[in-house]
Amino acid sequence: MSGQQPAVYIMASGERGTLYVGVTGSLRQRVHQHREGSVEGFTSRYDVGRLVWFELHPDFPSAIAREKQLKKWNRVWKLRLIENANPIWRDLWDDIQI
């Protein structure tokens, strides 16, 4: 999987809205898919298209472990994580350099 940068990310429908936690090897491509609703599923069903948090990882095992950890967190913890890094819930799409 050369050329891929493992990342864990959180998408939201809006400020403090519906949240989605995911992992990918191509953050820009995956976020684009969520934003366009090009893949049927949770994010297209609930209009979850704003990237509000992401974290890059050195390898897929660590990214997958972090995703699993975040999925077990309660909503308040996830909101706190987002708001510590992105207090105004800005869409981070333009911040993706990979």
Rank of each mutant, 00 (worst) to 15 (best):
R28V: 06
F54R: 07
R30P: 01
K71Y: 10
R28T: 03
R66K: 15
V76I: 11
I64T: 13
G49K: 08
S13Y: 10
R90H: 09
L27G: 04
D91R: 02
V21A: 05
G17R: 01
R30M: 02
F42Y: 10
E36I: 05
V48Q: 08
Q29V: 09
S44H: 11
V76S: 15
K71C: 10
E15G: 10
V23P: 04
E40N: 07
I96A: 03
G14P: 11
V31N: 00
E83R: 00
D47L: 10
S13Q: 10
M11G: 00
W77E: 15
T18G: 02
R16K: 04
R35K: 13
Y20M: 01
L81Q: 00
Q5W: 09
R75V: 04
T24V: 01
K78F: 11
W77G: 15
G22M: 07
I10Q: 01
E55N: 13
Q4E: 15
S26Q: 14
I96D: 01
K68Q: 13
G3A: 07
R66D: 13
R90D: 14
L27F: 11
W93Y: 15
L92Y: 03
Q5G: 08
G41A: 06
A63D: 06
W73P: 03
A12E: 02
K72H: 06
V76W: 14
N84W: 10
W77Y: 15
P6T: 00
A12H: 03
I88M: 13
I10T: 04
G49A: 15
K71G: 06
G3V: 00
S62Y: 14
T24F: 07
L70W: 07
K72C: 07
G37L: 04
K68Y: 08
R30H: 06
Y20E: 00
N74H: 08
E15T: 10
W53T: 00
W53Y: 06
N74I: 08
E15I: 09
A12D: 02
A63N: 08
A7F: 03
R28C: 11
L79F: 14
N74Y: 05
H32V: 09
A7Y: 02
D59G: 03
P6Y: 06
N74C: 05
D47T: 07
K72G: 05
R50A: 09
F60S: 14
R16Y: 02
D47P: 03
G17D: 04
R28S: 10
Q33P: 04
V8I: 01
A63Q: 02
Y9R: 07
A85L: 04
D91Y: 03
W73N: 10
R75A: 05
K68H: 12
G22F: 05
L70Y: 06
H32I: 06
T43Y: 11
G41F: 02
E15W: 09
W73Y: 12
E36C: 11
